[in-house]
Computed example of a mutant assay.
Amino acid sequence: MSEDLAGRLTVTVDLDGITGKAGLMDRVASALALPDWFGRNWDALADSLSDHTVWPEGAVEQGLLVVVRGWRPFAERNPDEWRTAQDVFAEAADRTPALAVVLALGGTS
């Protein structure tokens, strides 16, 4: 089964140089322009990814594609945190048909 991702508002989360969970949360919050009250924990991330009211303008109508780049070094340094991040991304995408999260396999440039 394939899903057409064309036409969705695309947001890139670049994890290049990130060494821990706090940095990951900061990058996601910045990329998605999450509100200041974003809790920077796994539950808050799952809720924000599934909550259309905090999505970037136009994303609800178009759908939202989150592309995660530069994740491999983070995953190697933080395998437990990375598994949790993947679970959160997958759960949010499963709960929210307008959301797709993809892991870019190429470089960060």
Rank of each mutant, 00 (worst) to 15 (best):
L32H: 10
G7W: 01
L32P: 10
G63C: 09
S2I: 13
E81N: 14
A98K: 03
V28C: 01
F38Y: 15
T96Q: 04
P56S: 00
P73D: 11
E91W: 01
T96S: 10
V67C: 01
L5S: 00
E61D: 15
V28P: 00
E3K: 10
L24K: 08
E61C: 04
D94P: 02
E81D: 15
G39T: 06
L49E: 08
D47S: 10
W71R: 14
G106W: 02
V54Q: 01
V11R: 13
T84K: 13
P73N: 11
A22F: 06
G17L: 12
E91V: 09
V11C: 11
D51P: 04
L99I: 03
D36S: 12
T84I: 14
T10Q: 12
D51T: 11
V60P: 02
R69C: 02
L64V: 03
R83E: 13
G106T: 06
L34K: 04
A29S: 14
D4R: 07
M1A: 13
D16R: 13
T12R: 05
E91N: 08
R8T: 09
V60C: 07
Q86F: 07
L99P: 03
Q86G: 11
I18M: 10
W82Q: 06
D4H: 07
A31R: 03
E3N: 13
L45G: 01
S30M: 14
L34P: 08
V88P: 07
E81Q: 14
L103T: 04
A59N: 00
D94F: 09
R83F: 10
E81K: 13
T96F: 05
G70M: 08
T53Q: 10
S50V: 00
A22K: 13
D16G: 12
P97M: 08
L45E: 02
A29L: 03
M1G: 14
R27E: 14
G20W: 12
R40A: 11
L32T: 05
E81A: 15
G107I: 06
R69K: 15
R95M: 07
L103R: 08
G39F: 07
P35T: 06
A22Q: 11
T108A: 09
V67A: 03
T108C: 12
G23A: 09
W82N: 10
V11G: 00
P35V: 02
S50K: 01
A31K: 00
T10L: 05
V101A: 04
P97V: 07
L65F: 00
L24D: 05
W55D: 04
R27C: 06
G17V: 08
A93D: 04
A93P: 04
R83W: 09
P79R: 03
V28A: 10
E81H: 14
R40G: 06
A22E: 14
L45F: 01
L103D: 05
R72W: 03
